[in-house]
Each structure stands twice: as structure tokens, then as C-alpha cells.
């Protein structure tokens, strides 16, 4: 069975940096990325705002990724794209699946940098129909920025996560209407920068203390019943698309079966958004590189 010192799972900012750190410390490294591209979530973030701390520049996500990838490619690390890690076993082996086949790798250390996933609308238990036209902000971002698609024309946003705010700006800039952004808390979430640059600058109507009670429409969504949490008032808002920005959850699925009394095995560490959700990529890069280079 093939053996490496370090197995890195995920080729986003965290995985790229952890793999580079480990390779530069003289270890043999294998990085696996499920997608076709390295860079992870960075690839779909076409807005600027990456790299201020690390490079003193305002880069887009792909530009930022382009700063990380060559260094790794010039290192001794082995990189496999379109390769998923299916499972991790207590005997320090991993099962890999790619177009080239299925194989098992033995490793000494593993860094799980699988990123995060978005909380979905369906998990909220809200009543109503289940029509087309409901997207998480990240899925909408991927469809729009990577697929070149449109998700709809009259868009309602539920939740004030950063991706939702960034998408609100994008929708307005591309000629779509953002009907409103609903947030159940009494203030908008996410980074202050996004609130200023995405919501205020584009005059997105924000309704605080407001949630969705019911989805309306068969086939495609035609609106929602909104409810004010303080007054209890309910009213209909019409829209043809609902985009949700309800928050991100670290994707730790792969290590769930390895926990012993809530503790990870000593050979496994989490990095980047897989460890905890990071707002700023620069800190992801620094932490991950240090983790790869350190001995533990």
C-alpha cells in the first residue's frame, strides 16, 4: 500500500497551505481535492476582498487562489484533483476514489480541510410547498459565477450571512431585483464591510425581526408569507427566487466515526473552515501553513 507522511483532504485555501507547509518541512505529502479545480470556495468568489493582510492587495477569489497554487505545484507535494476521500480509518488509512480508480493510502498524519457546508432552508422545518427556485447563497453563487446561469429575476434573501449579502449586490448589478433581505435578529449579521458595500451602497431593503412562515407557489416559488417576530404581523412578499444565507457549518463528516469520547485521534487535525468558519482567508492560510509545518 502506498504510504505518505501527510494526507491533506481538500484543496481550498486551507488544504493548499497545509500541504505546502508540510512539503516545505520536508515531508511527503498527498493532497486530494474532490473538484476539478484547486482553490475550493475561492473559485466562485468573483468579488474583491481577498489577500489584504497577506499580500496588501484587494484580490478576487480566483486571483488569490492563483497566488497559492503555483507554490504547491512547485513543491514536492503530490496533488490529485477529481479525487474524493471516501473514508478515514482508525488504522491510519484512507480510501480514495477518482476517475483513475479506487485506492487505499497509508499515512502518518492527516489534515482534514474539507471546508464547510451551508445550512439549508429545508432543515428549518418551515411549512408550505417545495417548489423550484430556492437556493442557498453558495449554490446561487456557484450557478451564477461558475456556470454563467441566472437563478431568477425577483429575488428574496433570507438570512444575512456574508454570501447572501455579496449575492444581493451581484443580483442588483446584473439587473435583477432584490425584493428584500429578511433577518430574524435585530441586526444584520456578517462583516461590517459587506453591510456597507453590499447592502447600504445598493439600498437593499432590509427587514429585521422578520422570518418566513410559509413558502407559496407550485412549480416555481411565487412568494412567501413573512412574519414580524415582534408584532406577529403576517404578509405576503412576492418573488420568483428565494436565496438563503443562514450560516455555514464546518463539514466534519469524515471524522465523525473516528471520535472517541468527543476527541479526535492524535494523528488527525482540522484546518480552515472545516475546523471553524473563518471570515478572512488570510488567517486560514497562515494557520493552515503553520499546522502543516509543525510537528505534532
Amino acid at each position: 500500500m502506498e504510504h505518505v507522511d501527510f494526507l491533506v483532504i481538500g484543496g481550498g485555501a486551507a488544504g493548499l497551505s497545509a500541504a505546502l507547509g508540510a512539503a516545505e518541512a520536508g515531508r511527503s505529502v498527498l493532497l486530494c481535492e474532490r473538484g476539478t479545480l484547486l482553490g475550493g470556495i475561492l473559485n466562485q468568489c468573483l468579488h474583491e476582498g481577498f489577500g489584504r493582510a497577506l499580500f496588501g492587495e484587494d484580490l478576487t477569489g480566483p486571483e488569490f487562489a492563483a497566488r497559492l497554487i503555483p507554490a504547491l505545484q512547485n513543491s514536492s507535494a503530490q496533488v490529485l484533483t477529481q479525487t474524493s476521500v471516501l473514508s478515514l480509518s482508525p488504522d491510519q488509512t484512507a480510501l480514495l476514489s477518482g476517475r483513475a480508480g479506487l485506492r487505499r493510502i497509508r499515512f502518518d498524519r492527516c489534515i482534514l480541510a474539507a471546508g464547510c457546508r451551508e445550512k439549508t432552508f429545508a432543515s428549518l422545518g418551515i411549512a408550505g410547498t417545495r417548489p423550484a427556485g430556492i437556493f442557498t447563497a453558495g449554490t446561487a453563487q456557484k450557478l451564477v459565477n461558475l456556470g454563467g446561469h441566472s437563478v431568477g429575476d425577483r429575488i428574496l434573501i433570507l438570512g444575512s450571512g456574508d454570501i447572501g449579502q455579496i449575492m444581493a449586490r451581484h443580483f442588483v448589478e446584473s439587473g435583477r431585483a432584490v425584493v428584500a433581505l429578511l433577518e430574524q435578529a435585530d441586526h444584520v449579521g456578517g462583516m461590517a464591510r459587506n453591510r456597507r458595500e453590499c447592502l447600504e451602497a445598493y439600498r437593499i431593503p432590509v427587514l429585521l425581526r422578520t422570518t418566513v412562515d410559509e413558502i407559496l407557489g407550485t412549480g416555481r416559488i411565487r412568494g412567501v408569507t413573512a412574519r414580524n417576530l415582534d408584532t406577529g404581523r403576517r404578509w405576503e412578499i412576492s418573488c420568483d427566487t428565494l436565496v438563503t444565507a443562514l450560516g455555514l457549518l464546518p463539514d466534519q463528516t469524515l471524522c465523525r466515526s473516528l471520535l472517541v469520547k468527543g476527541q479526535l485521534p492524535s494523528w488527525l487535525r482540522l484546518s480552515g473552515n472545516c475546523e471553524s468558519v473563518h471570515d478572512i482567508v488570510d488567517s486560514v492560510v497562515r494557520e493552515a501553513y503553520a499546522l502543516g509545518a509543525a510537528s505534532w
Partner: peptide
């Protein structure tokens, strides 16, 4: 019918 996933093209 009636449940297109996407909106009209940009």
C-alpha cells in the same frame, strides 16, 4: 412542467 430550476439567461 412549470418548475424551471434556473431563471432566464443573463
Amino acid at each position: 412542467e412549470g418548475s424551471p430550476v434556473l431563471g432566464a439567461k443573463y
